[in-house]
């Protein structure tokens, strides 16, 4: 398992210097979202991509982290930043008993149960109005006016996540995770306590996802059950981020996060305002209508993307890079 590529170091350095050159709020916002997704995608990946335990409900951990931060403010008037310390822990405390129950049941149980956990928490957060604010959600005052501090905090966390994930993967744990993914019976016979290490992997994954949730609460200033426990926007998106980039690779989720956040924004903004611009310029109704269609199409595009990626790039851009290179640069021999 290889050394940190120079490209990764350069990328982080570039990201660190970026706000000095380009302090545009919209741009920073997109980068913050991208970095949050690097964290979530990498977390999902360590459990699903490396350990082979696919979660269909990672929003459960994200939402738990976000609510932990929100509840610090709502009850007792602490700062939401406490969530950064405890959101991950809360998500982990949710994950451990859950894993302890589901992992011994092999097969599809874990995947399905994670989906159920996600739905249960969404309902609970909605029903327990007194405690969580119910459908109203939780609103907090942002700490900073500028986006720059949030940007650096998120960048720091994303880098920390990647560094931790990478060092785990290159240690005994990493070998154990991948062994479990490849063959559980073999892993057991080699002295690997498969249930325990699945739980370790889940704990790491839940921790970072929960921390990302707490960060989200602090940054966005608003959560409600249908935002942070959303199946499509978090659980499915987490899967997409990882598989588009490449499951079971260190940098795959980062690549996936870049593409998915880009795509999401591309559609949300109507091709970055292209349609609006064209509509204003030409005064034609068609463009305005086209923009609406495009804005509503993003879930459709995500759905199609799931289908296409699984069919043609099951190991993602990083994992199938050899295949991509071959088909794109077919004429040239491998360098």
């Amino acid at each position: 398992m290889k050394k940190t590529p120079v490209a990764a170091i350069v990328a982080v350095a570039a990201l660190a210097l970026l706000p000095l050159v380009l302090a545009d709020n919209y741009f920073l916002h997109l980068l913050i979202l991208f970095l949050i997704w690097v964290i979530i995608g990498s977390s999902w990946n360590i459990m699903a991509g490396y350990t082979g335990q696919v979660s269909f409900g990672h929003a459960a951990f994200f939402g738990t982290g976000a609510y932990t931060a929100g509840l610090f403010v709502m009850h007792g008037g602490f700062s939401a930043w406490w969530g950064m310390a405890f959101g991950g822990v809360a998500a982990m405390l949710l994950g451990l008993p859950f894993g302890a129950i589901c992992f011994p049941l092999r097969g599809a149980y874990f995947a399905l149960a994670s989906l159920a956990l996600n739905l249960i928490l969404m309902h609970l957060a909605t029903i327990a109005e007194r405690f969580t604010g119910g459908m109203q959600g939780i609103m907090i005052m942002p700490t900073f006016v500028s986006k720059v501090p949030y940007y650096y905090i998120t960048l720091g966390m994303a880098v920390a996540t990647l560094v931790v994930v990478q060092s785990i993967i290159r240690s005994k744990w990493g070998y154990y995770f991948v062994s479990i993914r490849e063959d559980q019976d073999a892993a057991e016979s080699l002295g690997i306590d498969t249930n325990r290490y699945k739980n370790v992997s889940l704990a790491v994954s839940a921790f970072f996802t929960g921390t990302a949730g707490a960060l989200y609460m602090n940054y966005m200033g608003f959560i409600d059950p249908h935002v942070v426990f959303s199946l499509h926007d978090y659980s499915v998106m987490a899967i997409l981020v990882a598989i588009v980039g490449g499951v079971g690779t260190i940098y795959g989720p980062a690549v996936g996060a870049f593409i998915m956040v880009g795509l999401q924004e591309l559609f949300r903004s109507g091709f970055f305002g292209l349609f609006k611009y064209l509509g204003d310029r030409t005064g034609s109704e068609t463009f305005t209508q086209a923009m609406e269609v495009v804005q509503h199409a993003h879930v459709l595009v995500f759905g199609i993307l799931v289908v296409v990626v699984i069919l043609f790039l099951p190991n993602g851009i990083v994992g199938d890079w050899g295949k991509i290179r071959k088909s794109v640069f077919r004429s040239k021999p491998a360098a």
Partner: peptide, 27 residues
């Protein structure tokens, strides 16, 4: 077709149905 695809995630058929569900809903 996925049965023949070599991939890391064993659940890719289930994932596929998630994608199909999204497409049906959005269409």
């Amino acid at each position: 077709p996925l049965i023949k695809v070599d991939t890391i995630l064993p659940e890719n058929q289930v994932l596929m149905t998630v994608g199909i569900g999204m497409v049906l809903t959005e269409v």
